[in-house]
Design a protein around this nucleic acid. Structure first.
Length: 489
RNA sequence: GCGGAAGUAGCUCAUUUGGUAGAGCGAUAGCCUUCCAAGCUAUAGGUGGCCGGUUCGAGCCCGGUCUUCCGCUCCA
């Protein structure tokens, strides 16, 4: 474990050193739990996003993609439950430093009263609490706790901080001019991309003439004001989701849930993640909107963690939006049921697949990173750091290296670059010894290097060198582009 | 958020008890022309995380702050 932990630290350093990931605003000492993608990282991230987008929207005739705005009407988050269900007032005990949800603390005290036979008093406290929470009266809640001398279970004291609201969503002012009534102009940065899909359900279904079952896919940024940040880009305040909401006929959701569960695991394997490093983890405690949920977990260097979530969200979201918008959100199903009659109008059920792009990025890099050491034929030690990123998602596909920088070799390299650069990302370099250049390409994960030498001028062949096993072979110059295209498809 | 540790060049680290910072690697330019790092020459890079205090004088002592790491807590 210590070894793996060191390896993870090495990977984090490597990401910075080779332009994959930088801490946000590092110039100003950084911003906690926010990271920037550098020149290599941005390309790798885009390649992963493109693979996902293609697998969803191009390879499935019944899935289309949208790009909803990050800003949404504030009522969206009331309907989704994010405002009320996920923003509980908290209080800390100053002696034990233990943090409690205020409702849990008071309910726990009420339970004790009941056990002591003081049922009436218990009920009175619960009633007052609910009234205070409903009014967002935090001072009142603190007074309620103090008046009842509710103690911390650990320190047994009643030395509490003020009741505080923990903001789980980021909010911002909408409109250039501040409103006279504070709060009027508040909009939230979306904490999940899913709601942008739900509120566009009718738009997409009608304009795209979509028939159930069908899916709407979307990639985009989401924002969560979580309490702490850990594990590099695994947990960030600003992150990117790749979500697909699949709308199905009620009663068939478990069938689709199981379908997507398997389908998504297969997809991860298709981009090079070994099956042995993936597993399913069923949720025991379900969120308010789900009737089934599981995580696809990956064995990160710091343990098994969620990479993707598959949730059966029932008709919760569409029903909520229908209620809050006072619009009818339903689908008329012309397919015939067992009795030979159309299924008719209903609110579709939803199966969600939601993968964290940043987590996927970390997955790919943690699998790819290796610090290798070996003994050469002459007995000396040699080593290299290599990123074995699968060729189809590697940021740079091909490095073109003239063996020396004269005798017309750079010119041949330039011609090859011009031939290839329209088809995939290339990198050309004529500085330093060839070995040094190979190592640099290993470090950034470039899967193929071709070297132009004097023989190239005579017989139009080049050396191609493979990153993964450092094997070299001689191929025709004119076949380079074709060969790389084959390997990255 | 709490507790512990840390922060010196892009990276890894020095600077013996307080006396205005060095090396290796890397980078850049040039030489050499060599198919798997570590040949030669030169150059650039640090108001020692930041702010304040003690002191004639602080990278070093003290306080605060920011960030990171480890553990706890939290995680729709």
């Amino acid at each position: 474990m210590a070894n793996e932990s060191n390896l993870f630290q090495e990977l984090v350093s490597h990401c910075k050193e080779y332009g994959y990931i930088f801490q946000s605003s590092e110039l100003y000492d950084g911003l906690s739990a926010v990271y920037d993608y550098g020149q290599m990282g941005a390309q790798l991230k885009k390649n992963l996003r493109d693979e996902w987008w293609k697998s969803m929207t191009q390879l499935n005739e019944n899935i289309v993609g949208i790009d909803a705005a990050i800003f949404m009407h504030p009522t969206v988050w009331k309907a989704s439950g994010h405002v009320d269900n996920f923003s509980d007032p908290m209080i800390d005990n100053k002696d034990s430093k233990k943090r409690y949800r205020v409702d849990h603390l008071i309910e726990g005290f009420a339970d004790e009263l009941k056990e002591a036979g003081k049922t009436t008093e218990a009920e009175a406290i619960i009633t007052s609490m609910e009234a205070l929470i409903g009014k967002d009266d935090y001072a009142g809640l603190k007074k309620l706790i103090e008046d009842n001398k509710i103690k911390c279970g650990i320190s047994k004291t009643c030395n509490w901080t003020d009741v505080r609201q923990f903001n789980l969503m980021f909010s911002t002012e909408f409109g250039a001019v501040a409103s006279e009534n504070e709060g009027d102009n508040i909009v939230y940065l979306r904490p999940e991309t899913a709601q942008g899909i739900f509120v566009n359900f009718l738009n997409v279904q009608k304009t795209g003439r979509m028939k159930i079952p069908f899916g709407i896919a979307q990639t985009g940024k989401a924002f969560r004001n979580e309490i702490v940040a850990r594990q590099f880009i695994f947990r960030m305040r600003e992150f990117e989701q790749m979500e697909m909401q699949f709308f199905v006929r009620p009663g068939t959701q478990m069938e689709w849930y199981n379908y997507w569960k398997e389908e998504r695991k297969k997809w991860h394997e298709s981009i090079g993640i070994p099956a042995a490093k993936l597993r399913f983890h069923d949720h025991v405690k379900l969120a308010h909107y789900a009737d089934a949920a599981l995580d696809i977990e990956f064995e990160f260097p710091f343990g098994w963690k969620e990479l993707e979530g598959i949730h059966s969200r029932t008709d919760f979201d569409l029903t909520q939006h229908a209620k809050f918008s006072k619009k009818k959100i339903q689908y008329y199903d012309n397919d015939l049921n067992e009795e030979g009659k159309p299924y008719g109008n209903y609110t579709p059920y939803v199966v969600e697949t939601s993968v964290g792009l940043d987590r996927l990025f970390l997955t790919v890099l943690s699998l790819a990173y290796a610090n290798e050491k070996w003994t050469k034929e002459d007995g000396t030690e040699d080593s290299r750091v290599v990123l074995r990123i699968p060729p189809k998602i590697a940021p740079t596909k091909l490095a073109i290296l003239p063996l020396i920088k004269k005798d017309g070799l750079p010119e041949i390299a330039k011609e090859l670059l011009n031939e290839c650069k329209g088809s995939f990302m290339c990198f050309c370099e004529e500085k330093d010894t060839i070995g040094k250049r190979y190592r640099r390409m290993d470090a950034i994960g470039t899967p193929f290097c071709v070297t132009i030498d004097h023989q190239t001028k005579e017989d139009q062949t080049v050396t191609i060198r493979y990153r993964d096993d450092m094997r070299q072979e001689r191929i025709a110059l004119k076949d380079v582009k074709k060969l790389v295209l084959e390997k990255i498809s």
